[in-house]
Write a protein that binds this DNA or RNA. Structure first.
Lengths: 225, 225
DNA sequence: ACCTGAACACCGTTCAAGT
DNA sequence: ACCTGAACACCGTTCAAGT
């Protein structure tokens, strides 16, 4: 492996070995492959074959790296806008599905992304047009559109949090609901116990896709009231 | 300050200076007061006037401390169950409000709590009875009850994530929506731009309480369809 | 301006030794 | 079993020095 110029000193113009973008892309690869805890400034520098301190010329600190990653994930997000060729509720659902899928593309980053107010605020501005357009077509008033969009986003965020948190964890960490309920003291939660038993093991095998669709349908019905 | 026995060696029975519970309570105080990053094993030991390594006799590692904190927060959670004296939708809303308030009690811990699958799974079992009872009274089938409860929980989680993330941050981090939208290129997001402009600065002053209520109403209407 | 090396003030955790 | 002290293998970041 040729060691192309890890001498110190300022590189000539156009020969910079780093850039904010290159650093963030390398960071994203680490996080995607090994999780958020694997991302350290030193590790990041090593994969870029650079001194750890060099990073600080492009990003002020580690928090900025994480914020930049949230930005990257949302920048990749492109909600489809089928225009008015489909009913408003399908338009809304499609946009919601695309948003969920965008978050799933980098599950190890979801927590970071969803808890970064600046990133979330920005994504609302950049990608929410299909949401607003669909809700407008549904005939809602401006205030209702605003609140409906927020409610839908909150649902997707909460859903994605659950969906991405479970991934990669051992199943011991998400113990079987049926067994847990049956271990409850008698009559501690009678309705829950009855419902869970009626559903049985098969009915409780949670499927994320159908859970998401169920939530979407409920919300659309609620908006349409 | 008297230094009561920081000699080494095993304490006599009943004179143990530590316990899992005491450690977790001390950790909770640190996190509540100074945020999750302030919690280190060394810092935690210092506030307990104990050697850092002593903690490891009660909790296997730092991850176990964080998991224990999530457990604590949810253990405090007590959803009111007014029984059948109120309509089912009020019963459901009240339980949802109580759940939200439980998460707000420790905002610095919300992220940790919501992303801990074991803790979330456990809270569902222990506190969701009012949700299930209300939805049962609404006349939903078991499968619908299960999915409705999940949808409601996801909404509350997503909402709480937004609510607690913004807290304590400088407002620069959640830039003004109106200004952001107006900075967009012409016709990038026409509907969004129109709606936001119609609402104006006052209409956009987001109020978490009314946002939560709006989401609850939408969901209840959707469940009742 | 951009990269480097040494250094500072921390981390979580292992291990051997005390009682 | 429970607590301690020293040590290991890390962190993020500051600072002075190179070009």
């Amino acid at each position: 492996m040729v060691n192309v110029g890890n001498r110190s000193g300022r590189p000539r113009a156009g020969e910079e070995r780093l850039s904010r973008e290159a650093i963030l892309l390398a960071a994203l690869r680490i996080v995607d492959a090994e999780g958020i805890d694997a991302l350290t400034m030193r590790r990041l520098a090593a994969t870029l074959k650079v001194n750890p301190m060099s990073l600080y010329h492009h990003l002020p600190n580690k928090a900025a790296v994480l914020a930049g990653l949230a930005e990257l994930v949302f920048a990749e997000l492109e909600l489809p806008d089928p225009g008015d060729s489909v009913p408003w509720d399908e338009q809304l659902k499609d946009a919601a599905r695309a948003y969920r899928n965008g978050l799933r593309a980098h599950p190890n980053l979801a927590l970071q992304v969803l808890s970064d107010p600046a990133a979330v605020s920005n994504v609302v501005v950049v990608t929410m047009e299909p949401f607003y357009r669909a809700l407008d077509r549904a005939g809602l008033a401006p205030r209702q559109i605003f609140e409906a969009a927020n409610t839908l986003i909150d649902f997707i965020h909460g859903f994605s949090l659950g969906e991405t948190s479970v991934r990669g964890e051992t199943f011991e960490l998400a113990p079987d609901l049926l067994a847990q309920v049956r271990a409850l003291p008698e009559d501690k939660a009678p309705t829950l116990t009855r419902i869970v038993n009626e559903l049985g093991p098969d009915g409780l095998a949670y499927d994320f896709d159908s859970g998401f669709e169920s939530g979407l349908s409920t919300l659309v019905a609620g908006f349409a009231r």
